[in-house]
Design a protein around this nucleic acid. Structure first.
Length: 507
RNA sequence: GGUCCGUUCGUCUAGGGGUUAGGACACCAGAUUUUCAUUCUGGUAACACGGGUUCGAUUCCCGUACGGACUACCA
């Protein structure tokens, strides 16, 4: 058995889509599980679609979620370069070999001629309008033109492409790790362009050549590649690499949350959830797309969620650390059907992960929302501790814990209209006075003090608790009030109560 | 249109010739929390349809429907 080598090979045409992250994750899991190698290769053969910053984005995104590559564009390796645009000459020689062996040919047809051919075929009611075994003899190529003319065109710099000569009647079979045997008749495969007129290879050629040269053992990629997989098989065969052909695993697609179709940025925007791991500003439009990170998701929660979209361990465990994921992962347990993207589940995972994280780590998220130096890490950790059971996103620590830093600017009107009465005012006044004598306030002391006050006044504690909360936090609900007061400190609580007492009108 | 791939609760899925078809999310209800959230308990809810094969099919086979991907000198 060859050592496992997998690759994640995105195109730098924009931000890395969440589906791409999942593909990278499955590759990574297999690599780690087998002590294999994960390669990051950049497929930038389409110069017209190149987007500046996209490669950097992909690298940062992978880093954020915690998918580490072993070899590739970042750290180099024995098969460098890992950017396909820098491997141009390599592809050229293999394309040449295919031509020399009679498995590929030069084609000189212009765009207009191709268009005309398609229209012609459409008009005659032909099912396929492809450049294929049935049409190639009607076109301008090295199969139809006399050798001298071909040579002359080549020499004089007439633009050309190299096309694969697909056999006209042959059953092409391939074994997919997820789907089993897949058979496609060669008549359904067209004479795909291998080398473009700009001298760059197309995906098909570059992909096969690189996977072979980089000794890739498993090609784990999206299902959208399944239809062209037979073409790739042909390429391996013609290049004489059939024995080294990697195993294929075509992943089910990530689908829109409602309705059908591939998950797209539009759907995410519409439903109001992120689709990119990190914030992404489109350099063309300047439009900002919010990332999972910036939306308050934890990377390990996102990965756990993603892992379960199309894969499951067969047990009832759902919470998996990355390490556990590696242990449990097998390609065999990847499902066949597309998975709808349900952001609710992602939120649930996030909540679980936040709850499980130590307060000190959580504190960093809170601190990030605060001006530097406003709050000690210890205090932030304490605040996160009282908040973490009730938080879904990392920014909720700030949203829900704001009152720890700012005295209420307004008071919940509903609570006031219902609970701000004479009894409440009596208790709060007495409680404030009592607290003033207790500089080191703890939750327990706050509780006994309050109980003492209410007992003396003969008023039920429960009746005024809401009023107390509103005077201290401004809100009608929130984390444990006694603990909150402990964190706030005695003098702050006293001043807030007094301020409420003087500001809020009696009902 | 053609080719290929797919189809178990609303969603992610387990299961697999004989099961009360299991779990999770979401949803609903109750309990806890003198708040809300959390938590706990319970509940609603699924084998797309039609033919075979079989003593028996949700499970195997075929077809239909539906969905998806692909059908570029994009990946």
């Amino acid at each position: 058995m060859r050592p496992v080598r997998v690759r994640f090979a995105p195109s730098p045409t924009g931000a890395l889509h969440i589906g791409g992250v999942r593909t990278a994750l499955y590759n990574y899991l297999l690599a780690k599980k087998t002590n294999g190698t994960m390669i990051l290769r950049i497929e930038d053969t389409d110069q017209t679609r190149f987007v500046p910053g996209a490669e950097e984005y992909i690298i940062q995104a992978l880093e954020w979620v915690g998918i580490k590559t072993d070899e590739g564009v970042l750290q180099g390796g024995p098969h460098a370069p890992y950017r396909q645009s820098e491997r141009k000459s390599i592809y050229k020689q293999y394309a040449q070999k295919l031509v020399d062996d009679g498995n590929a040919y030069y084609a000189f047809d212009s765009e207009e001629e191709l268009e005309a051919m398609r229209n012609r075929l459409k008009a005659t009611g032909s099912v396929h309008q492809q450049y294929s075994a049935t049409t190639r003899m009607m076109m301008d190529n090295s199969l139809t033109l006399p050798e001298s003319e071909v040579e002359q065109k080549l020499k004089s710099g007439v633009p050309y492409v190299i096309r694969l000569k697909v056999p006209d009647s042959e059953e092409i079979e391939l074994h997919d790790l997820i789907r089993g045997e897949v058979k496609v008749h060669s008549s359904q495969v067209d004479d795909k362009v291998l080398m473009k007129s700009d001298g760059m290879p197309t995906y098909h050629l570059a992909n096969v050549v690189d996977d072979y040269l980089m000794q890739v053992t498993h090609v784990i990629r999206g299902e959208e590649w399944l239809p062209s997989a037979p073409l790739h098989v042909l390429l391996y065969r013609y290049l004489g690499w059939e024995k080294q052909m990697p195993r294929f695993a075509h992943l089910p697609l990530l689908l829109k949350p409602d309705g059908n179709g591939k998950l797209s940025k539009r759907d995410a925007d519409q439903a109001g959830f992120p689709i990119f791991p990190l914030n992404w500003t489109d350099p063309k439009t300047g439009e900002l797309a919010k990332g999972f990170r910036e939306s308050g998701y934890l990377p390990d929660a996102l990965l756990n969620f993603l892992a379960f979209l199309g894969w499951n361990p067969g047990t009832e465990q759902e919470l998996f650390s990355l390490h556990e994921l590696i242990e449990a992962f097998t390609v065999e347990r990847i499902g066949k059907a597309g998975a709808r993207f349900d952001i609710h589940k992602a939120q649930w995972f996030n909540q679980q992960y936040i709850k499980a994280k130590p307060d000190e780590e959580l504190a960093e998220y809170l601190l990030a929302s605060l001006p530097a130096g406003t709050c000690s890490p210890e205090r932030a950790a304490k605040i996160c501790g009282v908040l973490k059971e009730r938080v879904t996103f990392t920014h909720d620590f700030w949203l829900q814990g704001k009152f720890f830093f700012e005295a209420p600017a307004s008071y919940d009107e509903q609570v006031i209209s219902k609970k701000w009465n004479d009894d409440a005012i009596k208790v709060l006044t007495a409680f404030s006075t009592a607290l003033a004598a207790i500089p080191d306030l703890t939750a327990a002391v706050a509780k006994t003090t309050l109980e003492k006050v209410t007992a003396e006044l003969g008023i039920g504690t429960g009746k005024i608790l809401q009023a107390l909360r509103v005077s201290v936090t401004g809100a009608g609900s929130g984390p444990d009030l006694m603990l909150s007061m402990e964190i706030l400190g005695s003098s702050e609580v006293v001043s807030r109560i007094n301020r409420a007492l003087s500001t809020i009108k009696k009902v």
